[in-house]
């Protein structure tokens, strides 16, 4: 299958391509974006985030700031501290980051802190902090559009969620996000809000990508996982959520779809809330609980039990597609 990736001009020594972001974390000027239904004003440039002209005050500001100052000794491993409405990440090598009030992210880069790593933390954990403090409902999963509706694919690490998402995009589907399904109720109807047009996948899976994309660089300098930017397949409007699939590897010989109901459904949804374990008591848990309860009542949720030997991504896509048509 032909790959039509566009490698940026500034090639890195490893030949993979260069993250087209300024080498310095903090660049001159303010960058403005819109994602997950929020506007952002940032002193940090995020090449994958959708640009947006913000008039007035943005919903969320991302700023450089002093949290502990020059004489601070970072911990040996990452630590997280929280209190209602606040969460602090004390990185060991990258940065100290504070998320407050659902609207402010302060970043203090540690000496030698890698900008790419810090951007990844901000695009993941820090955004999760904003979502939870605002009482939003983010699930960890890929969101694939199918006609006028969408479905969410959740999976434990290693099952190949992104590779499966790529199989759907190769077949002409669009997507809302490959990592976070931010769900909200629009007049009581569950919808997913578009997030970031970024797909992360292992380098060896790049050969299977057959839609227009751009390799923007490694997720982390020492990891063979790449970040792709694919705006052409990205749907930039909320889409009604039809169902949620949980991919789970089993010892069964065949693939089966098992409907989840009641407390079991709530349990699975709770387990897939994005970064909830790393938020302490910072977030609005009552709001999250009520939203999840409503979601569990309103949405069909199926566990896709996969055999130990996984089917090819294309085969699995066909099976899920057929299931969606029949149900």
């Amino acid at each position: 299958m032909a790959s039509n990736s566009t490698i940026p001009d500034k090639a890195m020594d490893d030949g993979i391509g260069y993250l087209p972001a300024p080498a310095e974390l903090f660049s001159a000027g303010i960058h403005t974006y819109r994602a997950y239904g929020l506007t952002f004003s940032s002193e940090i440039c995020f090449p994958q985030w959708p640009d947006f002209s913000v008039t007035g005050e943005a919903d969320v500001s991302i700023r450089q700031g002093v949290i502990f100052g020059k004489n601070y000794t970072p911990p040996d491993s990452v630590q997280i501290e929280s209190s209602p409405g606040h969460v602090l990440l004390r990185g060991s090598q990258s940065a100290t980051i504070r998320v407050s009030g659902g609207n402010a992210i302060i970043v203090e880069q540690l000496p030698g802190g890698n900008p790419a790593v810090i951007r990844q933390i901000l695009s993941g954990w820090a955004l999760a902090g904003i979502f939870h403090q605002r009482g939003m409902m983010p699930l960890h999963g890929s969101v694939i559009c199918d006609g006028d509706a969408c479905f969410v694919l959740c999976a434990e690490s290693g099952i190949g969620k992104s590779t499966l998402a790529i199989a759907f995009l190769n077949a002409g589907h669009t997507y809302l996000d490959d990592n976070v399904a931010l769900i909200h109720f629009e007049k009581d109807i569950p919808c997913v809000i578009p997030g970031l047009p970024e797909i992360r996948l292992w380098e060896d899976a790049l050969q299977h990508v057959a839609f227009e994309h751009r390799v923007v660089g490694r997720v982390k300098p020492d990891v063979n996982k790449l970040a792709l930017l694919s705006r052409a397949n990205f749907k930039n409007e909320p889409v009604i959520l039809k169902r949620i699939f949980i991919l789970r590897r089993t010892q069964n010989p065949d693939i089966s779809f098992v409907p989840l109901i009641g407390a079991a459904k709530f349990k699975v949804l709770w387990e897939h809330v994005f970064c909830v374990r790393f938020m302490g008591d910072s977030g609005n848990k009552l709001s999250l609980f009520q939203n999840l309860k409503k979601l569990a009542s309103d949405i069909a949720c199926f566990e896709i039990r996969l055999p130990a030997e996984l089917p090819s991504p294309d085969k699995l896509r066909e099976i899920i597609h057929d299931f969606n048509i029949m149900h």
Binding site: I261, V276, R277
Partner: peptide
Amino acid sequence: IFTGTIDDEMVAMSIANGKYYQ
């Protein structure tokens, strides 16, 4: 503790430890 009913089954969740109970 938060409680709720889903498909006639009650779940209770502890804010303090993040655990849920059926």
